[in-house]
Simulated scan of single mutants.
Amino acid sequence: MSSPWPQRQHRLTFGFPVPGGVRTPDGWEVVWTGCAVMGILNVTPDSFSDGGRHAGLEAALAHARTMRAAGAFMIDVGGESTRPGADPVPADVEVDRLRPVLRALAGGGVLLSVDTLKPEVARAALEAGAHLVNDVSGLRNPGMVAVCAEAGAAACVMHMQGEPRTMQHAPHYGDVVAEVHRYLRTQAARVRAAGVPSVLLDPGLGFGKTVEHNLALLRALPDLTGGEWPVLVGASRKGMIGRLGDVPVASERDPGSLALHLHAARQGAAMVRVHAVAEHVQALRVQAALDTPRQETGPLQSPA
């Protein structure tokens, strides 16, 4: 990287006005420095970590306000669990969970992402106020590419081997780093050529990968973050932390999540997707101070 990670700039472009966006010839551009925090808002009854806690509208909005106040740069709202072994949710049920939350959060000054792999759900979510589509299937569905392109929505292209119900049965790669990075770059170029204005890349930790695969991808992050697209890393409370740290309860894995996400930031990740927003914002600010050359150290600022 040409500069230390705390000074490195990242950008996303949208085809419509977004919080913090500046109008450019290519659309509305959001620029930030260092590693930003995407807060997780699961409005499902069966999330692996906090299932049911934020399924009601008031609880969801209260949690979103708390994350925003803590420094979340973006809030990722999901209406279907994608944990290993999860069963699919009908599109109309997913929309019913997402729409009221997104409508209530729209205009609140924070970027909103919708976590879905269904084009019809993405369309409804964008109409309700979402700005970015976070698709765990990596926009493999041409319909999802079309929805994002037509709306002018940015997208997160994630790598997943298989699908949620079966992805952890027997993950196998010849060279996990080469295969995942090649897929992400190829897919990003394809969806950009199809009219999606901007993309994040996500190596998909835990999505069809063993602990060893996940560790290999985390160690190889500089190869991915050194490219032209910003990189999102989401390790929060995942099973690999449970196994590495001997922590069987998902909600108790925030210390391990912080360790992996600080590593990702130091390797150039543009954003981390987390449950514990306040803790991550604090840790990233301290890490940024440590990693900023002394002559450049000044007042610490959150990503703008």
Rank of each mutant, 00 (worst) to 15 (best):
R266H: 13
G256N: 11
V95E: 04
Q267I: 00
N141S: 12
H275S: 09
D46H: 12
G56K: 12
P88Y: 11
Q301K: 05
D92K: 04
S236T: 13
A104W: 04
P90D: 13
E127Y: 06
G20A: 02
P100E: 08
G138I: 03
D175H: 13
L258K: 08
A154R: 03
A304E: 15
A270D: 02
L217K: 05
L260T: 15
V30G: 13
S3A: 12
G51F: 06
A64F: 02
P248N: 10
Q168F: 08
S302E: 11
H63Q: 14
Y183P: 01
A276M: 04
R83L: 01
P248L: 03
M271K: 09
R23I: 11
T297W: 15
L290C: 13
F14I: 06
F14Q: 06
A128K: 11
A70K: 02
S251V: 13
E296P: 01
P19D: 12
L200C: 05
V231K: 09
W5A: 01
G227C: 14
A259D: 02
V114H: 09
A289M: 08
V93I: 15
D202G: 10
R285I: 01
L184E: 03
V145W: 00
D76S: 04
E80V: 13
L262K: 07
V93L: 14
G107N: 09
L112C: 04
M67I: 05
G39H: 06
H275N: 10
A189T: 12
V37S: 02
V277L: 13
R53M: 14
A128R: 11
D26E: 15
T210R: 05
R123N: 01
A55P: 05
T82V: 12
A235G: 09
L111E: 09
E80F: 10
L117A: 13
L300R: 08
H213M: 10
C156G: 04
G226E: 07
L41A: 09
A128P: 11
R219H: 15
P230C: 02
G108R: 01
E252A: 15
L184W: 09
V22S: 07
C156L: 10
A259E: 06
D223R: 15
H280S: 15
E127N: 02
